[in-house]
Every structure is written in C-alpha cells, then in structure tokens.
Simulated assay, not measured.
Amino acid sequence: MAHIIVVGNEKGGAGKSTVSMHVATALARMGHRTGMLDLDLRQKTVARFIANRLTTIKRHDLALPTPVYHDLPEVDQASLGPGENAYDRRLSQAVAAMERDCDFIVIDCPGSHTRLSQVAHTLADTLITPLNDSFVDFDLLAHIDGETGKILSPSVYSEMVWNARQLRAQAGLKPIDWVVVRNRLGAQAMHNKEKMGHALDDLSRRIGFRTAPGFNERVIFRELFPRGLTLLDLRDVGVVGQMNISNVAARQELRDLIKALNLPGVTADF
C-alpha cells in the first residue's frame, strides 16, 4: 500500500504547493512510483504544475520522471449512502485508484479549512506543514502571549491534527509523523529566528511534531512553474554549467528536506 504524504496547513502563502511539487518530483526522479492529488479545487496549483510539465515534455521531447496526477472523480449524488459526504467518497475513490500502483501519494491541501483537507489529514502517514518563519504563521499552530512568549493554547489547526490522530488510533492505523517545515528562514541568526526556534521546540514537545528545514525565498521557483520544472530538472533541459550559487543552495535545501522526512525506503540521492 502507498505511503501517503499530506502537505497541509490552513494559511495561504506558506509554500505548500512548492513543497508538494518538489517532494513528489524528487521521489519520482529517485525511481519511486509517485502519485499526486490536488485538493484545492479552486486554485489547482499542483494540477497546473503537472499540466505545464507534460506540455514541456511533449514540446521538447524530454524524458523527465513525473508524478502521476489524478483529478478527484465526480460521484453520483444518488449513489451516496445516508449521511455520506460526497467529498469523502471522491477522495477515497481517488486514493483507492492510486494506492496499489504507487509507492507514495502526495496530497496537496488548500490554505483553508475544508472537508477534503480534514479527511486528508486522517489519511496521512506523513504530514508536512510548511510554515513561514514568523510569529504571524506560528499562530497557525498555537496562540502565545505577546509579551512573555508563553504558549497559551493550541490553534484550531493543531486541534484538527489531534483529532485526525485520534481517528487513526481508533482505526488501528499507525501514528501520523507530523513534520513542521520552516520556510523562508533568514540567512542570519536574527533574534526573531532564534525566538521562533525556541517557541517551536517548546510546542513540538507539547503537541508532538518535529521540525525540518525548508526553502528560502528564491525567484527560481516562480520562474520554473510555467514550464512545470523543478530545480532537479535543470540539467535535463540543457542548463549545464550555469547553476548559480542560489540554485545550488536550493538543491541542497531539497536534499536536506528529503533526508529530514525520513520516508520509508528513501535516500536523498539525486
């Protein structure tokens, strides 16, 4: 059965889709059969990325390892049982169609609370929560006292993850490995960065997640999206000997992230 990786939080702009696209593509490039689902039915960033990638492959006759993307199937409302939710059925059918042929399924969630996102979290073997390195985003995980820095209470998102864990335990499934990924870390050891680190360490012990390094803000991510490419594809499309320091550093960030996720049977060999 496939190992399910859910990339989620309830805040836009934290880098969920960037993380989803790069993790899924890295797994595909390492030879793992990888599927993708996009639960943001309005924005569909991941769906657009895959469509752009397939266009680039066809146009330039490239052989780029690519995750297999599935849309959520439509369901006949009349076929639903009493009290059954249509979104639950659509997600379960999509996962069932992929899991026997995939080693990994990467599910990209929207930046808001939806029924699809809620159910997807209960399916997660690994949950990745990208977080911009600021206390604005920290509020996604917990509320703190602005003067003392003391953690007051978990956020509604943390409570949702807790509920997902409880449902998995009741079903006899293994616990969720929850990884909070720190994106847009400052290059220098600034005071805010240090305070964020302490706050995350404290909260991780209280609600049970671990942290991993993410991506710095880089223009290259936005430039590659219209072509459906990632940093790992540059040599395949003819960018040889032109990797600048920023691009090399970004590749290393991806390597470090893949290692930190500690996925079954995966090494960061790319």
Rank of each mutant, 00 (worst) to 15 (best):
G214I: 04
L127T: 01
V239C: 01
H143W: 13
H143F: 12
N132W: 02
A212F: 05
V75M: 01
V75T: 06
T66Q: 04
A171I: 02
E147L: 13
P264I: 13
F49R: 00
L64Y: 02
T55F: 13
F138I: 10
M98A: 09
D177E: 13
A199R: 15
A94Y: 03
A142F: 08
V181G: 02
L261C: 05
L234I: 02
P175C: 12
K174S: 13
A94M: 08
F104W: 11
N183H: 04
V239A: 02
G208L: 14
M196A: 04
G238M: 02
G146E: 08
F135S: 08
L263A: 03
T25C: 09
A212T: 07
D256C: 06
T114A: 09
R90H: 09
K16L: 05
L91E: 03
S20Y: 01
L72F: 09
G172Y: 03
A51N: 07
R115Y: 13
R235L: 07
T18P: 00
T122M: 13
N132P: 06
Y87M: 11
H143K: 15
G146T: 06
S153G: 08
G15Q: 02
L152M: 11
P110S: 08
E74F: 11
Y69H: 15
L131D: 08
V266T: 08
L167N: 10
G12T: 08
H70N: 14
K195W: 09
G238Q: 00
L152R: 12
M190N: 12
Q93D: 15
L231V: 02
D236H: 07
L27Q: 06
E84M: 10
F49H: 07
Y69A: 12
T25G: 00
R115Q: 14
D256I: 01
P154V: 14
A120W: 05
